[in-house]
Design a protein around this nucleic acid. Sequence first.
DNA 1: TATTGTTATACTCTATAACTATA
DNA 2: TATAGTTATAGAGTATAACAATA
Lengths: 160, 160
Amino acid sequence: MTAAANGRADEADAGSRLLAAELTTEIEFLTARARAIGSSRANTLLAPLGLKVRSYAVLSLACSGLNPSQRELADFLSLDPSQIVALVDQLEQRRAVTREQDPRDRRSKGITATDEGVRLHDEARNAIRRAEAESLAPLDTGEREQLRALLRRIAFDAAE
Amino acid sequence: MTAAANGRADEADAGSRLLAAELTTEIEFLTARARAIGSSRANTLLAPLGLKVRSYAVLSLACSGLNPSQRELADFLSLDPSQIVALVDQLEQRRAVTREQDPRDRRSKGITATDEGVRLHDEARNAIRRAEAESLAPLDTGEREQLRALLRRIAFDAAE
DNA sequence: TATTGTTATACTCTATAACTATA
DNA sequence: TATAGTTATAGAGTATAACAATA
């Protein structure tokens, strides 16, 4: 996780007296904790499909119609190219995606989903949405959209 | 983070055409990315102090005046007790914290900061605040407080 | 000479189980 | 019998460097 599995994420005792500590006001800490809770739930619900948040992200981008190269996937997901190789290997072995050599640059391989990959992605997206609904249970609809908008700006405006 | 170091976190090309993908609307993905950016910055700024986000969290709780036991630290930080041992070992070796046996339950050890630990924590907290300011640069003050409040509810209301 | 994908390797982080001392 | 801390170990995740094919 980064988007790694974290099976212990929701074991913390939220009623703990340590909630009074200053640490709980720091965004860095809160973000890490929210991510751990979210990844844990997402990985649990993705497990029956043989996916994790990492492979789901690759599959999702393969289904986007944007035909990303492995290099683009690595840059966009902030993963090393060698990790993308392993993730694409897994998805390719189960016939969810294909590597297609770019005729204009034969070094580059576009990753696209097969019909089976699209089916798998539909199921996985439902799992992700269930996980999201559980993780965001304390927030109402408007607050969820607020959070989404704020996170999106941090995730993609800050890096430039 | 997990709050692990992620040196590649902010290398993604935010101007990428992949921004159009549906994936970028999913909270799970955005949270993981925000955490990676935040942890990366925080770890970079903590490195000169010989700390990471993990050890900083333990030090911070040791400085809270709440005198947490290792078991409480493990529960609250969602870490395995054996990982707490290693983190406290490191901090104890540099004389930043002490283990004190609880006289009412001699199995339990309360972790408290030394004067040196408090000094280290003051420096580290400044580093964390600088990291936070950088990570949240796209947001104004009101939006930062909004985000803090939303994350706090997810981090601590959801787990019950 | 630089870049894409690939392989290999080492390192960190995380999960699990067993042990001890206390309760 | 159960719990706090500890130790040891294996697995997953991550970083780094080197290589072949292509540009």
